[in-house]
Design a protein around this nucleic acid. Sequence first.
DNA 1: GACCAGGCACATC
DNA 2: GATGTGCATGGT
Length: 229
Amino acid sequence: MRSRLLNIFDRLLHAFGPRYWWPGDSPLEVAVGAILTQNTAWGNVEKAIANLKEAGMLDMDKLRAIDQVSLADIIRPAGFFRVKAKRLKSFVEFVEREHGGVLERMKETQTGTLRSQLLGINGIGPETADSILLYALDKPVFVVDAYTIRFLKNHGLHEGTATYEEAQSLFMKHLPVDTHLFNEFHALLVHLCQKFCKTKPLCSNCPLQADKRTRRWKGQGNDRDIDVA
DNA sequence: GACCAGGCACATC
DNA sequence: GATGTGCATGGT
């Protein structure tokens, strides 16, 4: 499984190149994006983040000071704006309470402990917690999302539909514990699925499908051709 | 107009 | 423990 996963990673990296995730100028922006992107297309999140920047709100003190209703109005384009405003406030209050309001200080806490803390925040589930750990705090945790689950199922790496924990342990058990590897691998899987596996539950045109042993396709944009042997 | 998008909490059975 | 539902905007 280790060599199979690394082989898939190498092919994806060669085909698509590094994805340079997570898109964000600071750990706070990454964490905010992780909450805003819950069940939401990234394009809508970008609009909400642009609104936050314009309002000067990508700042721990400002986020703590602003009232929830005003915050909701700013992040409206991201959808579910009332619940997400509440979740952002819960997160900011947590950082203030447990880590002195300094996001970077969270890195000093052991990963497992930090993950438990994050999961204790209302509105932070496994994916959001792991996204914050990996992409905002550089902790070696593999992020699982709907794309990852779909990928594992459609490519025969897991029978049936994997749970979050099953999917995560599959990667973390077989791959070297490496923040950079986990970062790129997840980002590449998202890119693959967004490009070729748009329909759920099956990605019928996905070029990495197990039953298509060899195939080439013309890359689009900056993507190169890829061998699927 | 229907469906989907980088979830999560809560109610119900 | 498993399943259903509410949360809401914007693109296709």
